[in-house]
């Protein structure tokens, strides 16, 4: 048995997508994730890295229950997600929140920052208008944004600011697990470092667990406690960031390492 201290466990998780094909030809489903097994200890950061198209986002979407596995189980806090009824699913949605890659698509262009952050509170009927507003200010403060931003629209913000807003929104329901799918990948290096630092602070402060998805091993090294390398939907190598960096076992992992800017010079 895997330890009780795990927020999330994936057990042999496989996801196949039906493929549209020419008529009269038999459609072979496409396997995006294949037999993935790993666990995420509470309060830790586990990273999944891999090239584009390797199945990372599909994995994240299954952990968020935006997608159901074809085979295998995603177990959250000891409970198989497939067994949740409506009420339990709604409760699950309070405890797990996403932050996505695209800072431009992650906020409804018609919603003010404050309204976007407050939406999860409204969905779960938490507090009154006044307490919600107060909570929005508190959250903005937590992600180091001025509270004056609450009345702004997304197009008035920079990419880094938007990503902070997305994080604030994800924190609104005080979740236990945050799934970060390429959450810093669209940002430039300096802003990336600031957001990673913020994430680390929030983790220490709130005891959050992170599932951190990225194609960039350099970023992964800065934040994660454990790394799983994914290729063609399979986990091909696992370990601590240091073992992955210092003794990569797979050709594929070495290729990912080599793709880090400046890695040649460092060697």
């Amino acid at each position: 048995m895997i330890g009780v201290g795990n927020v999330v466990e994936l057990r042999g998780v496989t996801k196949k997508f039906p493929v549209r094909s020419a008529p009269f030809r038999k459609a072979e489903p496409f396997t995006a994730v294949s037999d993935a097994t790993f666990s995420l200890p509470r309060g830790k950061t586990v990273a999944v890295v891999g090239e584009s198209g390797s199945g990372k986002s599909t994995t994240a979407r299954m952990v968020l229950k935006l997608e159901d596995p074809t085979r295998g189980q995603v177990v959250f806090d000891g409970v198989d997600l497939a067994t949740l009824d409506r009420r339990e699913l709604f409760e699950f949605r309070r405890r797990v929140q996403p932050v996505f890659q695209n800072p431009y698509g992650s906020l409804d262009a018609r919603y003010t920052v404050g309204r976007s952050i407050a939406e999860p509170l409204q969905l779960h009927r938490i507090g009154t208008r006044a307490t919600q507003d107060a909570r929005v200010n508190e959250l903005l403060d937590q992600v180091a944004l001025p509270t004056a931003l609450a009345s702004r629209l997304p197009h008035e913000l920079s990419g880094g600011q938007r990503q902070r807003v997305a994080i604030a929104r994800a924190l609104a329901l005080s979740p236990e697990l945050v799934v970060l799918d390429e959450a810093v990948s669209a940002l430039d290096v300096i802003v990336q470092a600031q957001i990673l630092e913020l994430l680390a602070e929030l983790q220490a402060e709130l005891g959050l667990s992170y599932l951190f998805i990225s194609h960039d091993l350099a970023v992964v090294r800065m934040i994660s406690h454990e790394v799983h390398v994914m290729q063609h939907g399979r986990i091909v190598e696992s370990g601590t960031p240091d073992t992955i960096f210092d003794q990569p076992q797979q050709e594929y992992t070495r290729a990912l390492l080599a793709a880090i800017p400046g890695s040649e010079i460092a060697r």
């Binding site: 968020l64 709604f90 996403p98 890659q101 409804d108 018609r110 969905l123 997305a166 994800a170 329901l173």
Partner: peptide
Amino acid sequence: EQEFVQAARSAGASGFWVIRKHLLPN
């Protein structure tokens, strides 16, 4: 498929909520 819709669903929004609060206005 946009991320603000995925985020709303992840926060527990029903199809009706997403349609009324996000899709229709857009």
